[in-house]
Computed example of a mutant assay.
Amino acid sequence: MTIAVYTAGESCQQCKLTQRVMTAVGIRFDTIDLTDDANAAARDYVTGDLGYSRAPVVVVDEHDQWAGFQPDAIARLAASLHAQPVAAVGTTDLSGGVT
């Protein structure tokens, strides 16, 4: 699963908070800076296709997305990701190692 965090650049405090909390709870994500002209297609996707007008925009999949710093949504996402069956990511032995 690829999670995308669309940001409004370095000055966006809600973007920084979202990224910081997602990292702290172990959520991997790609960051796309919407202020970079090279990301014009991503900006059109976020504002046109998805209809968001504020950042950050977190897109988990086509049905799970939000805008702004949303600690509850991050916690919900972390819980769902960490609730994945162990067999889906490897087999854990009793000593804590992954085989």
Rank of each mutant, 00 (worst) to 15 (best):
A67I: 02
V60G: 04
R76E: 05
V21Q: 15
D37F: 12
A55W: 12
Q70F: 06
A73Y: 06
T92Q: 14
T92P: 09
R54L: 08
H63A: 11
Q70K: 13
Q84L: 15
A40Y: 00
A42N: 07
C15Q: 05
I32V: 13
G9R: 03
L81E: 09
Q13W: 04
R28F: 07
A88E: 10
G9A: 08
A42D: 13
T7G: 05
L34P: 01
G68L: 06
V86R: 15
T7C: 10
R54F: 02
A42F: 01
L94C: 05
V98I: 15
A4I: 09
R20D: 10
T47D: 00
N39D: 10
P85E: 12
A55T: 06
A83G: 13
V5K: 03
D33C: 05
T91H: 13
V59L: 02
L94A: 11
V59Y: 02
T99Y: 12
V57S: 01
C12V: 02
V98D: 12
P56L: 15
V46D: 01
G90E: 13
Y45D: 02
D30P: 00
G26V: 04
T92M: 15
S95F: 12
S11M: 09
R20N: 12
Y52E: 02
P85T: 10
Y6P: 03
D93G: 12
L34I: 06
